[in-house]
Amino acid sequence: MSNAVSALGNASFDGFAKIREIGPVGMISLRAKPEVKGLAKAIKAAVGTGLPAQRQIEISGDKAAGWMSPDEYLLILPYAETAAAMAAIDKALKGEHYLAVVVSDARAVFHVEGAKADQVIAKLSPVDFAKMGANELRRTRAAQVAVAFWREGDGYTLVCFRSVASYVLGLLSHSAMVGSEIK
């Protein structure tokens, strides 16, 4: 809908890494056990990817499916396409025990870009980047709030709750200030 705006109006910050708020991005939280009949089909129909394995994110163009927990997946897609995807999921999982709910507006999404993007997040999250897989979706905290991030392009995509978007932009900007890079 034309009224839809992202949490921070695509605010950005340029430091030794670039921070950009993107969106609004379409997201669906899908709760189901991996063995549920039709789940792979539902994800394929909704975002065109396979069922992601533990802690993995499967990216296909502007869509993706991420593993959030043993019975939760995060589906990412263009904002306007959530209704169609929900319909496809409902069709594929009819009669099964699952819960699909649109959460596009509950989230804020950032790109952290640049060769030292990992340093920006390493100042906020207790994550060993050397041991993070190429397609790993890591759920953790950034300072005091929950986040999830994964590698994308020459940096990372990071998702947090919408209400704390301004806080998270503040965190990322503070960590990315010129002069703060680690040599």
């Binding site: 959030m68 927990s69 043993p70 759920r139 953790t140 929950a146």
Partner: peptide
């Protein structure tokens, strides 16, 4: 509880 993680 893995509260800042998978929530389990």
């Amino acid at each position: 509880r893995h509260v800042y993680g998978c929530g389990k």
